[in-house]
Design a protein around this nucleic acid. Structure first.
Lengths: 138, 138
DNA sequence: CTCAATCTGGATTAAACTTGTCCTGAATAG
DNA sequence: CTATTCAGGACAAGTTTAATCCAGATTGAG
């Protein structure tokens, strides 16, 4: 039961790299090489963050990507949700109407409680925290 | 990002039904009908719990299934792990050697911490709790 | 202005996973 | 014996994951 998919892992690595080089424009190729991520797959991932407004792209020669927000303002939850959507324990809890069994579901409250705890945990970690951790490890 | 797969949901419903009818032998057909689960799929699921020792099967006419343990001794985590394996945030954290990037992973500690919290939460809910909840709802 | 570097976006794809279905066989109560 | 019920392997459609490929748009530098 792996909760974080590979593309989300790649996204976290890529955005941590951008945070480590804040205020610089970095090419997808550089990120791909340093983070050992397939370049063309990474480009698709970065496009999602450009659309979400978390990353700025700079086209043309000498172009690349840079963070559009401060590292301390981007949380792990933000990144996970761009890639995998909202944290949901059970698909019953997705959508407006939910499942017809909800009234007799003995776990519904627990699932919602867990979702909130997981989301809270992930929103407590920012890219700045990851940068600090990376610098401490080095 | 749905964490609980459908077969795990079915398993939870089925075992809760068995707990509700503790010390009785119940057929897969009866569970399937009451819980709105495809019968043949449910049978596969129940077989897994027989192998894991949580459920006893009774073959032949008038046969069926019954819990092999007390409802208060079977946790949601037990059930989830039978269906989906151990709770792991990132596949990097699976296996003995893990991934080669682990030493420079700024999230490893947080992932492990989250895994433990999720597992702890799920092991705090037993089938008896679900039975109590079901009786309260009714 | 041209060209190389670089991002954009759509199409395609292989493998794995999910969610089942089908069928034969084995056990057993009555 | 035989109807009922579980056991287990094979099969399969649909979706997701994890890429790859390619034609096109943009832009900095020479």
């Amino acid at each position: 039961m792996e909760i974080i998919k590979r593309h989300t892992d790649y996204a976290l690595r890529a955005l941590a790299y951008l945070a480590l080089h804040a205020n610089q424009v970095v090419t997808a190729g550089e990120i791909a090489e340093s983070q050992e991520v397939p370049l063309e797959f990474l480009q698709k991932i970065l496009q999602r963050f450009v659309k979400s407004g978390m990353v700025k792209s700079h086209r043309g020669a000498q172009g690349g990507f840079s963070l559009a927000q401060e590292p301390a303002e981007i949380t792990v939850l933000n990144i996970v949700e761009v890639m995998q959507g909202p944290v949901v324990m059970n698909r019953c809890l997705l959508g407006k109407n939910g499942c017809p069994r909800a009234p007799k579901c003995p776990l519904k409250k627990s699932w919602i409680d867990m979702e909130e705890k997981i989301a809270a945990y992930m929103s407590g970690i920012t890219l700045q925290d990851l940068v600090d951790e990376l610098r401490a490890i080095k």
